[in-house]
Amino acid sequence: MDSHTPLFEIARFLKRLQWTALALGALWLLWLLAPVLTPFVLAAMLGWLGDPLVDRLERTGRSRNASVTLVFTAMALVMLIVLVLLVPLIERQIATLIASMPHYRDWLLQTAVPWLEARTRMDISAWLDFNRLAELIRTNWERAGGVATTLLGYLSRSGFAILGLVANIVLLPVLTFFFLRDWDLMVARVQSLIPRAHLATVSKLARESSDVLGAFLRGQFLVMIILGVMYGLGLWGVGLDLGILIGIIAGLLTFVPYLGPASGIILGCIAALVQYGDWEHVAGVLVVFGIGQVIESYWLTPKLVGDRIGLHPAAVIFAVLAGGQLFGFLGMLLALPVAAVANVLLRYAEERYTHSRLYAGEQPLPATVAAADQPAPSQAAVPEPAEHESK
């Protein structure tokens, strides 16, 4: 047996090397095919999000095709309503912001900077050479315009690039419909390929990953929409011209604790001071965000998201940024699913490690850990207490 040990170790090393090379090759292929795979990944995520509703409609007696048609139509109508209502509204808000830029510049130069200089006793104006900043912005704008002109010229000459963009837009709803219709079949096909000895463990980890990612995406998306609407309407009620735009920004940043409300409060207070110059409207902004935070903390997040997410906000931000850096927009789409699966696998690895001899050492495992490793004894196998026997 000892003579075969080196050969066994070499074979195991070569097998690990093969799996590593296969993983690296898959990542390289993913990087190459990122532009092509983007609509497929986005459609798969939409199909995964809509599949529970399709299954629920099927349980009411409808066929799979009818359920898929209803869910797909509802999703398309929601997207159409959002585009029709939200895009013109954001466009008007941006136009208002551009028209208000001179007022913000005057407020910064005549009010904010002198107020900071009086309290910090620092010559901020000397550090902020606005003429130089304006010249720098103008130069970079011209350079960006030249780059944009070159890029647009290239795109106009490259019919293939434009055709690919149009094809991705057209493919998205078609692929989403097929993913919705065949999602259960694809899951069953993947499940049939899993080795039978590991089926229970893989199924358990897959369910946990789906629950974590589904709770985060569905719950946090609803929280972002509700808070964005609340903040926008509240700031509009206070009287801010840019209230809806600030509310949308604060709602989109809600998935990061403290960043969403903090950015909304800062932007809202600046907008109130520039537009009105009094503290009554600033107090109104604080009231709007205070009410929103109370509703989010005590009702929205507990009800819609819950405490089973396990994805730290810093991990979410890192995953999205790292995915975008490595694989572009496709990486940003895959970042959250990969982070959710990695989080579940890390918890599983930690559980296995804390129940192993490596963690406990040579000493006997604690009673709780040993009990967790052993199956529960049947009632017939439990011995009677010694006191009862003595009686």
Rank of each mutant, 00 (worst) to 15 (best):
D51V: 02
T60L: 13
L37A: 09
L57R: 04
E58S: 04
A43W: 00
W19C: 01
A44H: 00
E9C: 06
L29G: 07
R16V: 02
L22Y: 15
L22T: 10
H4T: 09
G50V: 07
P35T: 02
L17F: 00
A43I: 06
L22I: 11
W19P: 03
L37D: 04
R56S: 14
L32S: 11
L30W: 03
L49F: 12
V36C: 01
P6D: 12
L53K: 10
R59P: 04
Q18N: 03
P39I: 07
T38W: 02
R56W: 14
F8M: 11
L27K: 04
E58Y: 02
R16P: 00
H4K: 12
L30P: 01
T60H: 13
E9G: 06
V54Q: 05
L24E: 06
R59Y: 04
G47P: 04
R12P: 02
P39F: 05
A23V: 11
T20C: 12
L53I: 12
P39H: 01
T20P: 00
A34T: 15
L49R: 03
L7P: 00
L7Q: 13
W19V: 15
K15M: 07
T60N: 10
V41W: 03
A43S: 09
L24M: 11
P35N: 08
L7E: 05
R12L: 11
K15W: 08
L32R: 15
R12N: 10
L53H: 10
K15A: 15
L33N: 02
T60I: 13
L30N: 09
V54T: 04
E9N: 08
D51Y: 04
L57H: 03
I10A: 14
F8W: 14
L22G: 12
V54W: 00
L29N: 02
F8Q: 14
L46A: 15
A43D: 08
A23C: 09
A43V: 09
H4R: 12
L27Y: 10
D55S: 10
L37F: 09
E9T: 10
G47K: 01
P35H: 03
W28Q: 08
K15G: 01
P35F: 05
R59D: 12
L37P: 01
M45W: 05
H4V: 14
L14G: 08
L29V: 13
F8H: 10
A44Y: 08
H4L: 13
W19N: 03
L32P: 00
A11K: 10
L42F: 11
L29Y: 09
W31A: 08
G50K: 06
L42G: 11
L7C: 03
W48M: 04
G47D: 04
V36A: 13
T38P: 00
L37Y: 02
K15R: 14
W48G: 06
L37V: 01
R12Q: 06
L57M: 11
L24N: 13
L46V: 08
F40K: 01
V41R: 00
D55P: 00
